[in-house]
Amino acid sequence: MKFGKLLSAVALSGVAMLAACPAVAADVWPSKPIKLVVPFPPGGGTDLVARAIGQKLATRLGQPVVIDNKPGASTIIGTDTVAKADADGYTLLISGSTSYSVNAALRAKLPYDPIKDLAPVAMVARAPLVLVVPANSPFHNLADLTAAARAKPGSLNYSTFGSGSAPHLAGALFGLAAGVKLQDVPYKGSSQALTALISGEIQFGIDTVATAAPQIRSGRLRALAIVGSVRSSLLPDVSTVIEQKLPEAVFDAWYAVAAPARTPAPVLQRLTREIAAVMADPEMQIQLRTQAMEPLTGGPDMLRSQMETEIARYRALAHRVGIVAE
């Protein structure tokens, strides 16, 4: 073989080997522990979902799944860590809409772009919110609440966890859908907000089913509606805002898994398959429902569509009602 042809053959062989590298890497993945980043402190809803999924996923993949809690800056610290991590399938994110859509909609500057810098893997659960009033409240459904708000605009106060929080967005959507003016009142957390509600300091609140259900069952609070698209298995008798003729008031809280952009497609595809199998496990479903979460099996297309839809929706909402994230 002449030298020129030999050189060309070697070059082509090198190109072929380079092209094959991602496939080879995917074939042997995972060969070491996987880090699942949770942008919240231990013990919260996201952390509980992460640990439940991580344990099952580790068994299926044959490698440890290590939970890495990186809280702070409204999930920005943890999310940015994943967005800038090596795209090799060994660093993943599990978080809710704050990381995937709310921050992008409400903040002018972010160190990451969720659409460009994250590769969607799977949606795994919904965490329904519920609109509640004190047990002695005159309001027995959303129509009662809406009528009172319409009669005296701005007279009804509701609890939030600060500007741009889930209860704030849900309350703003409810106000727009019902065509009424409501006043948000920020509290430091669920405990403080529920105490204020039970004492009559505010007229209604919006919180997770997991947090509010014990107070509802004890008779201290009355549930008026699930602020989501489907009922909660923990409160099956409580109808949704859709059923009460306010579909535009839907606010779905959810959890999803993503990887850094440019993670090899075969790795992403296997992750999606394995997580779907984990979420179909009856034991996993029981565990999540016990925590007032609804198991969900949705692939990357569903997650990307959810992100894009919510970013546009919450950006428009923020513009209309003047929401600025803290």
Rank of each mutant, 00 (worst) to 15 (best):
R270S: 03
G298I: 02
T79C: 10
Q244I: 11
N103D: 15
Q291M: 13
D113Q: 07
N157C: 08
G162S: 08
H319Q: 15
P214C: 08
V230W: 00
K245C: 04
M1D: 07
V38K: 01
A318S: 14
M307K: 04
L288C: 12
A258H: 01
L48P: 02
A261Q: 10
D27R: 14
G164H: 05
F174M: 09
F174A: 06
K32S: 13
K188R: 15
V82W: 05
T211I: 14
D207M: 09
S74Q: 11
G154R: 02
H319M: 09
V49K: 03
L106K: 05
L173H: 02
S232A: 06
N157P: 01
K56H: 14
G205W: 01
G189Y: 11
Q291N: 14
V324P: 00
R320Y: 02
V180N: 05
P22R: 06
G4N: 12
P33R: 05
A292H: 04
P71C: 04
L156A: 01
G179E: 11
S233F: 09
P39E: 04
A23D: 12
A253Q: 10
T91I: 05
G200Q: 08
F3T: 13
E248K: 13
G96P: 13
A318V: 06
G175K: 01
D47H: 15
L194H: 00
L93R: 01
G189H: 08
A316M: 08
G14D: 04
L145Q: 02
R304Q: 14
Q287V: 10
V10K: 04
G298L: 04
I34Q: 03
D68E: 15
L6T: 12
M302S: 07
T195S: 15
I94H: 04
V66K: 12
L224S: 03
N141V: 11
C21K: 09
A193C: 09
G205N: 11
G299D: 07
M284T: 14
V65T: 02
Q215H: 15
A280S: 12
P167V: 05
